[in-house]
Nucleic acid binder design. Structure first.
Length: 503
RNA sequence: GACCCGUUAGCUCAGUCGGUAGAGCUCCUGCCUUUUAAGCAGGGAGUCCGGGGUUCGAGUCCCCGACGGGUCACCA
């Protein structure tokens, strides 16, 4: 502990004085009977004239302290909010009042007393007794400015939650959002399931995985990049509607929209196609907007996003032509697409086909500009090895992505369920990998085996929960909606590194 | 991975031209029984991110590094 610090030393001194006085500064339990927010709501009408209000028992963290000699005001913060307490020597007695001088901001305290309203109108608990519940040894962030240092906010999120009320609200909203999503799917007959996060082959998306190892089986395993292939095995197994709110892991950089571990909703519905899922998506998001915000419009980074359905639907090529003003004729050939990419500073690798280049052009030129909810549909087959092709054009699959707030929010398609075609697509991916593309899909025999038993027609979708939470909390960065975003260890190279061989 | 910006007291931040490191809040002591950014008086508090260099002298200038943020790249 940082005993050099005077502030810590002072608190240790008070702690020892409490113990000498026979007080347990860390008791095991306390019976809480009331929450601050409930009291504010229930006794909004309590008047100043009313001498002795109802008896209450509250507990929380001390957030402010104003001593006036023989009387002390303080604010107690519990999970619901804050309430003022008033400790008077004549009420608690002289011995207890001496102990009250050992209080510090940050301590946890239990208080029994009666409600009253001060002459400045604030609902307050006049303590009859109070009890130390936990002595705090370190000073909290300062009361005016709170905590603004971004690094400290993320590394010591508990301080952020204590000091910055809106941050706590953001995470409460995130929790409500997920609860509401569960309710939506449960009501529609979906079964919530859990599938492996450690997989012998990381499939279901095109991304590089994290690698780990199982000692007893001497097995290389990968952290999943998506639950997709397991969820579709369940569709084969007869669970016609399944969903998983899953943590997936992708070994890639961090940005305002990417964290290496992230939360995704994936759901699959048998006998449906991607058009059905566009409808489900519209229903889901407009429902969430209604439940969370009380309307179809939500503010996001200075814009107003409207989730009132229906939302525009554009094919990927239409988007490139209409929104990026690219020339349809030129884009129709691989050489033309490549030339267009070069002109717009979009990198293309020699092995890439026309579809991949169109995808890159879209990501660079169109995606970030789509603020209002917009479906982009009909993606190149070479980008979508698990999606069913359109009947009219094998180069395009029945797939959509949803964009909102300039971010990709969802990705869905009619699932490819022809095992012969799936095998051919996997082999095509392997060919691409041989040409140096690291983010191709592997050939998953075990998945093909399942499909050979017969997978019903189905459509599946993944929705980025973190990004959805960004939208609903008006957060500019994914780190604002992830409690503990990935960070380098604070001590850097000093000592902690190089111990990975402990595995 | 590249570029830009940042790192000074527990917190929020100043720090001029290179010349003894500052403020507010927090903390301590005293007074104070309806305050709420309580007040008044007095006092304390520093690895200026780390390491090197230039200099009589570096928080300040130069180089290397750490961590963070942003932009780009990568990545849905």
């Amino acid at each position: 502990m940082d005993e050099q610090n005077v502030l810590v030393r002072e608190r240790l001194r008070k702690l020892e004085e409490l113990e000498r006085a026979g007080v347990d500064p860390y008791p095991a339990r306390f019976t809480v009977r009331h929450l601050a927010a409930d009291l504010h709501r229930e006794y909004a009408a309590l008047s100043e004239e009313q001498a002795a209000g109802p008896e209450v028992v509250i507990a929380g963290r001390l957030m402010s302290l104003r001593s006036h000699g023989k009387a002390t005001f303080a604010h107690l913060q519990d999970g619901s909010g804050r309430i003022q307490i008033y400790i008077v020597r004549d009420t608690v007695g002289p011995e207890a009042y001496e102990l009250c001088k050992k209080l510090d901001v940050g301590d946890h305290l239990g208080v029994e007393g009666s409600l009253f309203r001060t002459k400045t109108g604030e609902l307050t608990v006049r303590a009859r007794t109070f009890q130390f519940l936990s002595k705090s040894l370190r000073p909290l962030p300062e009361k005016w400015h709170g905590l603004t240092d971004v690094e400290t906010r993320f590394r010591q999120r508990y301080l952020d939650l204590i000091a910055n009320r809106p941050v706590a609200d953001t995470f409460r909203k995130r929790s409500r959002l997920i609860a509401e999503i569960r309710r939506f799917f449960d009501e529609r007959g979906f079964l919530e399931v859990e599938t492996p996060m450690m997989q012998a082959m990381a499939g279901g998306a095109m991304a590089r995985p994290f690698i780990t190892h199982h000692n007893a089986l001497d097995l290389t395993l990968y952290l999943r990049i998506a639950p997709e292939l397991y969820l579709k095995r369940l569709i084969v197994g007869g669970f016609d509607r399944v969903y998983e709110i899953n943590r997936s892991f992708r070994n890639e950089g961090v940005s305002t929209q990417h964290n290496p571990e992230f939360t995704m909703l994936e759901f699959y519905q048998a006998y449906a196609d991607y058009h059905d899922l566009m409808t489900v998506t519209e229903e889901l998001l407009s429902h969430l907007a209604q439940a969370m915000m009380g309307g179809q419009e939500i503010p996001y980074q200075g814009q107003r996003l409207s989730f009132a359905p229906p939302w525009p639907r554009l094919t990927l090529e239409e988007a490139l032509v209409k929104l990026a003003r690219l020339d349809a004729e030129t884009l129709s050939t691989e050489a033309g697409a490549r030339e267009t990419a070069r002109r717009h500073g979009v990198i293309s690798v020699p092995g890439w086909g026309r579809g991949k280049i169109l995808g890159e052009l879209f990501d660079a030129l169109v995606g970030p500009t789509l603020h209002q909810p917009t479906f982009i549909i009909d993606f190149p087959t070479e980008l979508s090895p698990l999606a069913k092709a359109k009947a009219a054009d094998a180069a395009v699959v029945q797939r959509f992505e949803l964009y909102a707030g300039g971010m990709e929010i969802a990705n869905a398609y009619s699932e490819l369920n022809d095992p012969r075609e799936q095998r051919a697509r996997f082999l095509e991916q392997l060919g691409r990998r041989d040409q140096g593309d690291l983010e191709t899909h592997g050939l998953d025999e075990d998945y093909l085996l399942a499909m050979e038993y017969g997978m019903p027609p189905a459509a599946g979708e993944g929705i980025g929960i973190d990004r959805l939470a960004m939208l609903f909390t008006d957060s500019p960065s994914i780190r604002e909606v992830i409690l503990f975003p990935l960070m380098r260890p604070a001590q850097g190279a000093q000592g902690e590194r190089g111990t990975a061989d402990a595995v």
